[in-house]
């Protein structure tokens, strides 16, 4: 007896956004990455289109980070002092695109200068043909100073510049607008705040198809359930036709999972936590996979093994299309 499966037909869809610009488009990228375009909930191929698979980005820094887990420092030890080499290694590890997170201070402990930031970004652009996302150090003044310089020096590359937050978005949006870049907009795990920031940014005149939203997710054990539900709700709202939520979502499970004690600490923890390295990678992987299930379009990771696992999963999730259509 054939079962009649009810299908959801949604009036809305997620915007399609392309990161990176080919030489023919005014950039220097060897390939571009397109995300979004969904007309159904994640991987529901039987009732809508999932035209672009979620992509995996690897996060690198402009110098050896001070606060990363020793496990990660070990993993990337050969390239960690050189963002260009690191970017190349990340590409080799399977990244679809690179996230370069600028540091507040340089190797000498002095504030990172705009020139240094531009140099790092340019080195990374030379080392890889992948599209690039650049995050400021996360402090309003430094973000604005560094990102404006980077933005101007890379006009036309269609970088994504971040992180716009409700207290500091104007400068980043303005420079992205002027130099043909995108922005990422981060809000703390709340559907309304996410929507509000998108409205504020688009009110400045930046088209919605140049905004990626980062709803903040929390790591496994540290609030992932809120991130998970906020993402599901944002995606449902987008499909229901709410324009201000129809943006692809970028999430940073690497950052979230690797700041958890479970990943950072290897000694003096309960035996029931098991092997440190495997636990830490599991932590990142499971955080990322759960977010992929709830609608992430770009997942930013830190460990190559996680990248491998998440990419394999995405491939299988996309492959189901041929089975049901």
């Amino acid at each position: 007896m054939p079962v009649e499966v009810p299908k959801e037909k949604w009036p809305g869809s997620v915007r399609t956004i392309t990161l990176g610009a080919l030489p023919s488009e005014g950039g220097t990228r060897k390939r571009v990455v397109t995300v979004g375009g969904e007309t159904a909930m994640p991987f529901m191929h039987f009732e809508g289109e999932i035209p672009n698979p979620p992509v995996v980005a690897i996060e690198i820094k402009d110098r050896k980070p001070d606060d990363w887990s020793p496990l990660l420092l070990e993993t990337w030890k050969d390239v960690i002092d050189d963002p260009a080499q690191w970017a190349a290694a990340a590409e080799a590890a399977g990244a679809d695109l690179i996230v370069l997170a600028l540091s507040l201070t340089n190797r000498n402990g002095e504030p990172t200068s705009p020139d240094e930031a531009v140099a790092s970004v340019k080195a990374v652009l030379r080392a890889t043909g992948l599209p690039l996302i650049v995050f400021g150090p996360g402090q309003a003044e430094a973000d604005n100073a560094l990102l404006v310089a980077v933005s101007e020096a890379t006009k036309g590359e269609r970088l994504a510049l971040g992180i716009c937050e409700d207290k500091n978005y104007r400068t980043i949006v303005a420079t992205a607008m002027a130099n043909d870049h995108l922005v990422t907009a981060r809000t703390p795990m709340d559907v309304n705040l996410a929507k509000q920031l998108n409205i504020l940014i688009s009110d400045m005149g930046l088209p919605l198809d140049r905004i990626l939203m980062d709803p903040t997710t929390g790591a496994l054990g540290y609030g992932i359930e809120y991130g998970f539900s906020v993402m599901e709700r944002l995606r449902l709202a987008a499909l229901q036709g709410d324009k201000m939520t129809q943006l692809p979502m970028i999430v940073t499970p690497g950052f979230e999972a690797w700041k958890a004690k479970e990943s950072k600490v290897g000694e003096g923890v309960p035996a029931s936590w098991g092997d440190w390295l495997n636990r830490a990678i599991n932590w990142e992987t499971l955080t990322a996979l759960t977010l992929v299930e709830s609608g992430a379009d770009i997942v930013v990771l830190r460990h190559p093994e996680s990248v491998k696992r998440v990419k394999a999963a995405i491939e299988e999730l996309m492959a189901a299309k041929s089975l049901v259509s």
Binding site: N192, Q196, I199
Partner: peptide, 11 residues
């Protein structure tokens, strides 16, 4: 939270 906006998040 939805109402913490002018006039409202849901315009």
């Amino acid at each position: 939270m939805a109402a913490m906006f002018l006039p409202h998040t849901d315009l």
